[in-house]
């Protein structure tokens, strides 16, 4: 286990390093950083001051060392927009995203697993056909499009739900519903396929020969075996939600990391952009470890 965690941590450290190098050199080599950090109409003098202040006239390698040194002390610089440490701004937004992702993923996983398992139990039946049809459509739907169609329908025409922002519980419904659809479709498909395999496996035959009732056969005997491929997809989708709620968040004006990213990019708040990427990368790293632990818990044959 320790060896595995070390390997995992090393891989993540390497990827963070690659990320840092990439971000640093992209931001330094593709143009003058003053253009990145300062407003377009800043004076020449202001630019020179900025350069001196941030040591931009030093050799690149010195700048890089300083940059990494700052990152190691968790200093991502200050947000220009909010005049606060960038990390604080990001963590505040991250809490929103995490809550949104967590609620959605719990709902999605539960619904997809139950419906997928039931569909697999009755392959070719009416329920299976309906579930397959809707999951295929769900898996094919672009979330930004669903989001704006939902706004037109439920907020503008029917006036049932708020169009954007936060504040009440009602504000959570549309973002969660929209984020729900695609992962639900994808995960249901995987659950169904994996459960069909599990339900036709020899150990299920044994369970039936023992006189086990259908429901425990599905949910006790087959499900735990069929969950392994499902866990992988759930992990992928959760990772996608941690960084990919960008679209839904910005459409619904939801103050999460995704919206923060887009706003910061548009307003040249580069320190925040960087901090957001680092925080998300770290969260994905933690989640991948959780996924691996889930594997080992579900399947005693897997030991790290």
């Amino acid at each position: 286990m320790r060896k595995f965690l070390t390997r995992r941590a090393v891989a993540s450290a390497v990827s963070l390093l690659v990320l840092i190098v990439m971000v640093f050199f992209l931001s330094r080599l593709t143009g003058d950083p003053t253009q990145l950090y300062l407003p377009v109409d800043a004076s020449l003098e202001a630019r020179e001051n900025f350069r001196n202040l941030h040591g931009l006239n030093d050799p690149l390698i010195v700048q890089f060392g300083r940059y990494v040194g700052d990152l190691l002390t968790l200093d991502f610089g200050d947000s220009i927009r909010k005049s606060r440490p960038a990390l604080d701004v990001v963590i505040e937004a991250f809490k929103w995203t995490l809550t949104l992702a967590l609620i959605t993923m719990v709902l999605v996983s539960f619904a997809a697993i139950v419906f997928g398992a039931l569909a697999a139990f009755n392959v070719g039946g009416v329920f299976d056909r309906i579930a397959t049809f809707f999951s295929l459509i769900g898996a094919s739907a672009p979330d930004f499009w669903i989001a704006i169609v939902a706004i037109v329908l439920f907020s503008v025409n029917l006036g049932w739900l708020p169009t954007s922002g936060t504040g009440t519980l009602w504000h959570w419904i549309l973002p969660i519903a929209v984020l729900f659809i695609r992962p639900f479709g994808l995960i249901l498909q995987v659950v169904r396929g994996s459960m069909i395999t599990a339900l036709s496996s020899p150990y299920v035959k044994t369970a039936r020969a023992k006189g086990v009732r259908p429901r425990p056969v599905i949910f006790v005997h087959a499900l735990r075996n069929g969950m392994l491929p499902v866990i992988t997809v759930i992990g992928d989708q959760a990772a996608g939600m941690l960084n990919g709620a960008v679209v839904v968040e910005s459409i619904f004006g939801f103050p999460g990391v995704g919206k923060l990213m887009i706003d910061s990019i548009l307003q040249r708040d580069f320190a925040v952009v960087l901090a957001a990427i680092m925080v998300t990368a770290f969260a994905i790293f933690l989640m991948n470890i959780l996924i691996d632990i889930a594997y080992a818990v579900l399947d005693p044959r897997i030991r790290y």
Partner: peptide, 25 residues
């Protein structure tokens, strides 16, 4: 019939590895 299965009539199979559920003790 489920009451009879396992209690009155039981069955064992070829290839016990795949006929035992791998994830339970």
């Amino acid at each position: 019939r489920r009451d009879i299965n396992g209690k009155r009539i039981a069955m064992i199979f070829q290839d016990p590895l795949s006929h035992l559920n791998p994830v339970y003790t």
